[in-house]
Design a protein around this nucleic acid. Sequence first.
DNA 1: TAATCAAGTTTATGATATAAACCAAATATT
DNA 2: AATATTTGGTTTATATCATAAACTTGATTA
Lengths: 95, 95
Amino acid sequence: MFKELNPLLHSELRLGVMSILISVEEADFVYLKQETKATAGNLSVQIDKLSKAGYIEVTKTFKGKMPCTLCRITPKGVEAFEEYVEALKTYIYRK
Amino acid sequence: MFKELNPLLHSELRLGVMSILISVEEADFVYLKQETKATAGNLSVQIDKLSKAGYIEVTKTFKGKMPCTLCRITPKGVEAFEEYVEALKTYIYRK
DNA sequence: TAATCAAGTTTATGATATAAACCAAATATT
DNA sequence: AATATTTGGTTTATATCATAAACTTGATTA
């Protein structure tokens, strides 16, 4: 019947971040903030959760002298996202 | 870019309930409980929220001597569900 | 050198999902 | 007939979570 919705992905902001990362494969904090229209604090917290779950990889570098937090999706993250989409379909395209 | 996800529908159980009601147009409490595998308490709370939002209509009747809570989706509920699905697609099928 | 801005992080809070506990009526058991 | 159990729920308590506000650190500007 219905598949379970991974609670880590069933969150507007985290889903937005994952959605971006699955298509671009690398994005920095500032870009993610712009695209998702999130506040910095919220984004920081949610990036942390995705990172701790092993869904994304976070690298802290510098762009010139400014700090720059780079995010990339991991294979585990890709898998989780795809599973989440499959699960969603059981709610949306119910037969 | 991303469309907002109606928080009332962006909840596993409420989405499940709406998903059922959009296809069958009438279902009772017991059926919804079976299909969603929810606890009665949780289901009761979520049905109440959907009802207060005007997304579903709840009628309390009897089946024989046993109480029977019937739920039907409203036009407003159909619209909200369809909008939610459109919004979801901006996260899932991102161009 | 003081003020402002950029890029984040930490903390506080309010909302939310969920289950546990409860209730009332019907049915089954002794 | 009284008691226990089941059915169909509702109410209440709790723990988690999303979010924004407040803070930090270093760079840039006035």
